[in-house]
């Protein structure tokens, strides 16, 4: 280790007193970092699962660094400002990748990054308390919202995130609205739903599993039965209820795609991709991700444009539902 240090030192001193030292042929020669856009939590641990397996493939360490801020945009800007040497990866979650650029809050779009493989998705659902007699099913729920415009209170976690857009879009489609109470920590919202302060809330499969004694789903935001089954067998999909909210496939879910700086050399990107594919295909990695409610999506880097492009279009059409909700509440 020390000899390696001396060797690098000697080479560095001889070769390049000022220029950067990017050698694709010996990549990776040191620890790699991955910027993570939220505070530490379950999604952070999932990122570590994948990067740890990638690190083993590459024979190096990949450290995940949590840099929350500006609704996730801070970590994206940080990666853009960093060197394009393949030593800084980005856990590209959909909200800062697609929604924030569409809202005009960024200078980048999803096309300003080079994709690696896609990682995982988390399907969302609307949940209510099991013992809440007002909402035996989806139809009565909408009926209630119609009779009490703007009176019901729900939470999507933060304001202006993907669950907020999806719920607002669904309610707008039904011609109803409610008040979104922001909670920076999703868990606090679920606690207040349990405690009876909130009328309904978004949820993810794992929190739902843990609160099955108290919660039931009204609708899961997906068209696929096996995705809805991540909640429970009774959970209904959008299709089951005959709903078209203009968001299909991945669009109404939370999902992440690993990214690097756009100018990263091709051979380095190729090395990373080989490692990430191998990591994702490992049965232990798949098993762990699924156990935690993060479903592996397995889209290859070539599919980035064809998958993300249409999602962008759908989100662009749906995001106005948030503004519509705010307008209704003002009246």
């Amino acid at each position: 280790m020390f000899t390696r240090f001396l060797k690098t030192a000697a080479v560095a001193a001889l070769l390049s007193p000022l220029g950067g030292l990017v050698h694709a042929d010996d990549y990776p020669s040191r620890n790699i970092e991955m910027m993570f856009p939220w505070g530490p939590g379950s999604a952070f641990a999932m990122a570590q699962i994948i990067t740890n397996a990638m690190g083993e493939e590459l024979d190096t360490n990949i450290t995940v660094v949590s840099t929350p801020g500006a609704a996730g945009v801070k970590s994206f800007n940080t990666v853009q400002d960093d060197d394009a040497d393949g030593y800084t990866l980005l856990d590209g979650w959909v909200a800062p990748l697609i929604l924030q650029p569409l809202a005009g809050n960024t200078e980048f779009t999803y096309q300003d990054f080079t994709p690696l493989w896609s990682a995982t998705r988390v399907p969302f659902a609307i949940v209510v308390r099991k013992d809440d007699e007002r909402f035996p099913d989806y139809a009565t729920f909408i009926e209630y919202l119609k009779e009490n415009p703007g009176k019901a209170r729900y939470s999507s976690g933060s304001i202006g995130n993907i669950p907020h857009m999806v719920i607002a879009k669904l309610l707008q489609t039904e011609g109803v609205y409610a008040r979104n109470i922001p909670y920076p920590q999703d868990g606090d919202a679920f606690k207040d739903l349990r405690g009876g302060l909130l009328d309904f809330s978004f949820n993810d499969p794992i929190t739902f599993q843990s609160n099955k004694d108290a919660f039931k789903t009204l609708v899961a935001f997906t068209n696929e039965d096996d995705v809805a089954a991540a909640y429970d067998d009774e959970t209904q999909t959008l299709d089951d209820l005959g709903l078209d909210i203009g968001l299909t496939g991945l669009a109404p879910s939370g999902w992440n795609w690993f990214l690097v700086h756009k100018d990263t050399p091709d051979d380095i990107v190729a090395t990373l991709n080989t490692a990430m594919e191998a990591a994702l295909l490992r049965p232990d990695v798949q098993e762990k991700l699924k156990a935690a409610g993060f479903l592996p999506t397995m889209y290859s880097p070539d599919q980035y444009e064809e998958i993300v492009g249409p999602i962008g279009d759908q989100i662009a059409a749906a995001k106005d539902a948030i503004a519509w909700e705010a307008e209704q509440l003002k009246k």
Binding site: A12, S16, R30, N31
Partner: peptide
């Protein structure tokens, strides 16, 4: 990952 600098020493 400690700061690398221009020399890239680790």
């Amino acid at each position: 990952v400690l700061p690398l600098g221009r020399f890239g020493l680790t």
